[in-house]
Design a binder for these strands. Structure first.
Length: 220
DNA sequence: ACCCAGGGTCATA
DNA sequence: TATGACCATGGG
């Protein structure tokens, strides 16, 4: 519990002053971004990024090529990111979905955000976090992405309960910040950077209690 | 030899 | 609606 940080905007300002812009999503193209969303699931970004690079080298950052390649070939390329059989199927499901829009992400991203979310959630392997990541960082629409790091930090701040649901946390942010894509996207990126790495190295301000943000689901 | 990582699905109650 | 098993590799 940190009595000195009261609002989302205040937390955002502290994080931004401490770390600066995070330049998310760390992918060169929209296709690489969406492939990365699947690969990073319950894995690390370093492993996911390696696999994205390997896929790029083999020209598999192409929806048509992802649809056409046989699964066992993808297995070997995805192996380092973990869950390689599952993620192979998910990549193919996403490629098949985008195929409904003639592989034109411009068309897909032109959908209204609420409609885009509903459609993305029908794709095997795309849950709320993945859908919102695609909407925010791919389609550049204002949506706040909730993940495990967000939960941890908000819980440590006393802003949400231990068992708070995804939508509850998302609404908390949406109702208390300006609905701007750059702001919401940067906020999430800053939270990830802070909880994952930076909070272990240094506090975000002098005397600021948010130094460590340990996991909690096995504690207490 | 553990524990964990930028989740999601499916079967069950 | 909510819980639990399952998916798999690499790094600490």
């Amino acid at each position: 519990m940190n009595p000195s940080i009261v609002s989302h905007q205040q937390l955002y300002d502290l994080l931004f002053e401490a770390y600066g812009p995070q330049h998310w999503w760390p992918a060169k193209t929209a296709v690489a971004m969406m492939v990365g969303v699947i690969l990073v699931q319950n894995s690390t970004w370093t492993q996911a990024a390696k696999v994205v690079d390997v896929l790029a080298e083999h020209n598999y950052l192409s929806w048509r090529r992802l649809r056409d390649v046989d699964e066992q070939t993808l297995w070997d390329l995805l192996r380092p990111a973990g869950y390689f059989r599952v993620k192979t199927k998910r990549l193919k499901a996403v490629a098949s979905f985008v195929g409904q829009y003639d592989d034109d992400l411009g068309r897909l991203f032109a959908l209204e955000p609420a409609m885009l979310r509903v459609k993305l959630l029908t794709v095997n392997g795309v849950g709320k976090e993945s859908a919102d990541s695609i909407i925010c960082y791919g389609a550049k629409q204002p949506v706040f992405v909730v993940d495990a790091y967000t939960r941890r930090l908000f819980y440590r701040l006393g802003w949400v309960g231990e068992r708070a649901g995804y939508d509850e946390i998302q609404e908390l942010v949406h109702e208390n910040m300006a609905m701007e894509q750059t702001l919401l996207g940067e906020y999430h990126a800053l939270i990830v950077s802070h909880v994952k790495e930076q909070c272990k190295v240094r506090p975000i301000c002098s005397g600021c209690p948010i130094i460590f943000c340990p996991r909690y689901h096995n504690s207490r």
